Simulated scan of single mutants.
Amino acid sequence: MTVKVVCHMISSVDGRLLPGRWTKPVHPVNVTECYEAAASNFPADGWLIGRTSMAQYDDSISEGAPAGKRGADEPRPTPFVGKREGRMLAVVTDPKGKLRYTTPTLSTGEHLVAVLAPDTAEDYLEELRRVGVSYVFEGEGEKKLEGALAALEETFGVKLILLEGGGLINGSFLKAGLIDEFSILVYPAVDGLAGVPSIVGYAGEAHEQPAAGQPLELIEAKTLPGGVVWLRYRVEHSAA
């Protein structure tokens, strides 16, 4: 796999992700501006989030019933490149095909790319093509996310992508061993409540250790205006 995945997130001191719940800092800093300014330092081809996060991100996107499945005897579909027009990519993992789109472009300017299951029904794919939304397909079995990254590389030439959550999709990438770097902005605030979404939230069994064999090496630490701390860690994949 040659696509580099950087998990880029901003959180409270206790790792929580909902800014509306955070305490107010002594020296306020705009969360979005701080986050995007740091992200601009990476030569990324786009960013990737999960279905729930994307449905909340833009008013032009809604969530509906899952797409149908194609029959076992039907040929598997191929990726589609819609109306990209040279824009950065906004990739969403949506294997059930629940999202509905009215435009191929987000209000922030990025071109939408859906990552779907290989057996997604043709009528849903036709709907995406009509709107101009691009799509690729995840891999099979335990290689679902790895297959998605390979498809993004082959179809769009992606070399670096920012994984921007939520915690569940970040956890899935971590469990699959596909995160190469963590870029974490620690905002000077606290949430404090148990169960609030955090940077990584793999949905596994109590005995599972999704980060096992992936030690972190600090490669950079910066103090930004307002007391925000930017930490960058390389993920090593050689440990047993």
Rank of each mutant, 00 (worst) to 15 (best):
104 P>V: 10
158 V>D: 07
147 G>R: 06
133 V>K: 04
160 L>M: 14
134 S>K: 08
111 H>N: 06
161 I>W: 07
94 D>N: 04
135 Y>H: 12
111 H>Q: 07
123 D>E: 08
140 E>H: 14
154 E>G: 09
127 E>I: 09
124 Y>S: 04
127 E>S: 15
157 G>V: 00
159 K>R: 14
150 A>T: 11
124 Y>G: 04
145 L>P: 08
161 I>S: 15
100 R>D: 05
126 E>T: 10
108 T>Q: 09
110 E>G: 10
121 A>V: 01
114 A>S: 11
157 G>A: 02
154 E>H: 06
140 E>Y: 14
139 G>Y: 07
154 E>A: 09
149 L>T: 00
119 D>C: 03
129 R>P: 02
131 V>Q: 06
103 T>W: 07
93 T>N: 00
120 T>I: 10
121 A>H: 13
96 K>R: 12
148 A>Y: 15
94 D>M: 02
152 L>D: 01
136 V>S: 02
127 E>T: 15
130 R>L: 11
153 E>P: 08
123 D>R: 14
127 E>W: 15
113 V>R: 00
106 L>D: 13
132 G>E: 06
113 V>G: 00
135 Y>I: 00
115 V>Y: 13
152 L>M: 03
93 T>S: 08
98 K>I: 00
109 G>M: 10
111 H>M: 10
113 V>W: 03
137 F>H: 04
148 A>W: 14
96 K>P: 07
96 K>E: 14
107 S>Q: 08
137 F>Y: 08
121 A>P: 00
142 E>F: 01
128 L>N: 15
157 G>Q: 03
94 D>A: 02
129 R>M: 14
